[in-house]
């Protein structure tokens, strides 16, 4: 399949009301499924809200149970339709808790989990306190889907240039980024400076590696902290082709042509260059790898 119909659902969940938010998601799925859609992406902590503190232990779910809830919500509103869904959630894996995202494939009425990514970089500074409550993911895996190889990076994972770089080197052609970004910076310009920073990071990653970036941002205020939404699809040339506003729940959608990835890489073969040089860079004895 060369063209993938992507819908990014920018959610504005009610804090901690997982079941109610899941019920609302059925309506969103019904709306999203009324038009051609192959891949739906939702934000980090999309159905609970991001800042949960100790309540994360009450709301975290086993990944299979969460995937089951998602697929049931989809099949109830779109019986018989195939779709892939990515959604961020707090995961309880046998009593160890992660900030995770699941990639779910629904095909022929059956759902299968293709991958679960556990956030590796847990921000624990300033307004953030993730590592107080959660454990770090230890692996960055790419995985095969019916639309090609992908990787998921959650929020701060994306702020370390080496993470998307490794994902791209490992073959990912689409990077999916569920995120929850509290906005700040009112000094200048027409938007919050934190939004400007995110845009620069995402467009830079896409242009450097010739990958699609699918960024789903959480929206809504959580105890005064406004999540900046701004969900966007960035093409492999580094151009934002569609974006949501910072405030409120939205769906953005676009058909993405996977052939653009090869065109972008032919024009700017930086990833190929990196493949050639990366072994030399990593063999550097000054690198503190262990």
């Amino acid at each position: 399949m060369n063209v993938v119909n992507v819908a990014i659902v920018q959610t504005k969940p009610r804090k901690g009301k997982y079941r109610e938010n899941l019920r609302d998601l059925r309506d969103v799925f019904a709306q999203a499924g009324a038009d051609p859609v192959d891949l739906i992406v939702l934000p980090e902590a999309a159905l609970t809200g991001y800042f949960l503190e100790g309540a994360v232990y009450e709301l975290a779910l086993d990944s299979d149970a969460f995937a089951g809830d998602l697929s049931a919500a989809w099949l109830e509103t779109n019986p018989g339709k195939d779709v892939d869904i990515v959604c961020g959630f707090y995961e309880n894996c046998d009593g160890t808790y992660y900030n995770s995202a699941v990639y779910l494939e629904v095909a022929n009425g059956n759902a299968s989990v293709k991958h679960v990514h556990r956030k590796m970089f847990l921000p624990t500074y300033g307004v953030f306190d993730e590592e107080r409550f959660l454990s770090r993911g230890r692996h960055l895996e790419t995985f095969e889907t019916r639309f090609g190889r992908m990787a998921m990076l959650i929020c701060e994972d994306c702020w370390h240039a080496i993470v998307p770089t490794i994902a791209a080197v490992k073959g990912a052609r689409i990077l999916i980024v569920p995120s929850a970004a509290p906005g700040r910076g009112i000094e200048d310009g027409g938007e919050l400076t934190s939004i400007t920073r995110w845009r620069g990071i995402l467009e830079s990653i896409a242009a450097e590696h010739g990958v699609y970036l699918l960024y789903a941002g959480l929206a809504g205020f959580e105890g005064g902290k406004g999540m900046t939404g701004s969900s966007r699809i960035v093409d492999p040339h580094g151009r934002t082709i569609v974006e949501a506003p910072p405030l409120g729940a939205h769906i953005i959608r676009a058909p993405i042509d996977l052939a653009e990835i090869d065109l972008a890489r032919a024009t700017l073969p930086l990833l190929g260059d990196l493949h050639a040089v990366l072994p030399d860079l990593l063999a550097d004895e000054e690198l503190p790898l262990r």
């Binding site: 804090k15 809200g49 800042f51 949960l52 503190e53 100790g54 309540a55 959580e222 105890g223």
Partner: peptide, 8 residues
């Protein structure tokens, strides 16, 4: 120890 956000 008992930590819940203000909007929970």
């Amino acid at each position: 120890f008992y930590l819940r956000p203000v909007d929970f």
